[in-house]
Design a protein around this nucleic acid. Structure first.
Lengths: 121, 121
DNA sequence: CTGACTGTACTAAGAGTGTTAATACACTTG
DNA sequence: CAAGTGTATTAACACTCTTAGTACAGTCAG
């Protein structure tokens, strides 16, 4: 379901958070569907249950999932997640454009790159 | 010359590396001009000389500056730095476009955002 | 040559974070 | 009741970042 990247400098729990968000945004995990249990995912990824728990707690804090004691963790509505994701991307793009300006990259060149990347695959 | 952001999660030495690169790319620091000494910058930023040394060592490793024992640190040619910077941005943009695709953001919308950000300030 | 400045190297210590391990408890469901 | 859930707690370990202190070698102006 998820693959960890140990070359990634970021902590494991953070990777789990992002991967889960990706799966939800991609529609692999639908609203109200159940996530793997803390212990199950820990086994699957060969990490400690505490680490998974930390990731799930963060996902709940962000409103991405909801938890029911004794039953499990479930995917929350994805509308807010989609909105957050979009805002996050806009923010990143804004930073990137600032950098591009500093590097004397013209708007035309930038747009050309965007089109090129959109055409890929 | 440089301002540290203690809200930034990244280590200080990494911030120093990036800020120095920015100053060089912006032309504030010209080729072969001298950087502040390790001890001087440490005093200026109220951090330990070792931390500055680490940043400078990293900058030298990346070929951004060159060091002369007993004399100081100097800005290397900026052509390779410019190239690296451009490649880095392209890579980041590529990732961003991938995310945008997943989020069902059209090429048109994306380009519109780019133009908007370019128009700012 | 001397002194003050450079870079560089090393060790030690402390703080913070991430991760693991081992329990324990409450809740739900078959 | 038993097995599976989430949740909480404590301890320990590893790793990284940062600081502190010291030391040594090179450069340069006086």
């Amino acid at each position: 379901m998820i693959t960890l990247d140990y070359a990634d400098r970021r902590p494991i729990y953070e990777q789990v958070v992002d991967k889960m968000k990706d799966l939800i945004l991609l529609g692999v995990l639908e609203t109200d569907s159940q996530l793997p249990s803390v212990r199950e995912l820990a086994m699957d990824l060969s990490i400690n249950p505490n680490t998974v728990q930390r990731a799930y707690a963060e996902l709940e804090r962000q409103g991405v999932i909801y938890c029911v004691k004794g039953r499990g963790n479930f995917v929350a509505g994805i509308s807010t997640l989609k909105e957050q994701h979009k805002e996050e991307m806009k923010s990143q793009l804004s930073e990137l454009v600032k950098k591009a300006k500093k590097a004397d990259i013209t708007e035309g060149d930038f747009v050309e790159l965007v089109k090129q990347f959109y055409a890929e695959k």
